[in-house]
């Protein structure tokens, strides 16, 4: 490349995109299973013990953290642009970005803690 680019936007957009794809694939399935199929008795629900056993697997923990983290980043990015452009607050762009991504990072950290203490 002819010169260095220091903008964070490409990296934030990649996280936003990854989060969008992942939630679009995973969340409908989770909602279908836990919101429809298990309550209506179409499928036998896993017991709490089985879910705990699953979540003790480091890979399963990682999957939950990645799903929560990227989903949160997706929401933060969309919310940031909606607030900044929709409410015409361009002059407060940095503060809005800090609050949106900061909240996403904090909630991801909460997910890490919750999954780790199981």
């Amino acid at each position: 490349m002819s010169r260095e680019r220091t903008s964070a936007e490409p990296f934030l957009w990649l996280l936003f995109s990854a989060g969008g794809v992942l939630t679009a694939l995973a969340v409908p399935m989770i909602l279908f299973l836990f919101g429809i199929a298990f309550p209506l008795g179409w499928l036998d629900p896993p017991s709490n013990a089985e879910i705990y056993t699953l979540l003790r697997n480091p890979l399963a923990r990682l999957a939950v953290i990645v799903l929560c983290g990227l989903g949160m980043m997706h929401a933060a990015h969309r919310l940031r642009h909606t607030i900044r452009d929709g409410l015409q607050l361009q002059r407060h762009g940095t503060a809005i970005a800090a609050v949106c991504y900061g909240t996403a990072a904090f909630l991801t950290a909460v997910a890490v803690v919750l999954v780790s203490v199981i």
Partner: peptide, 20 residues
């Protein structure tokens, strides 16, 4: 175009100049 630009940004961030 965003995907291409993001790809180049990641490369510029991770790879030393002579590899790019």
């Amino acid at each position: 175009a965003k995907l291409i630009a993001a790809n180049e940004a990641v490369k510029a961030f991770l790879l030393p100049r002579w590899v790019r």
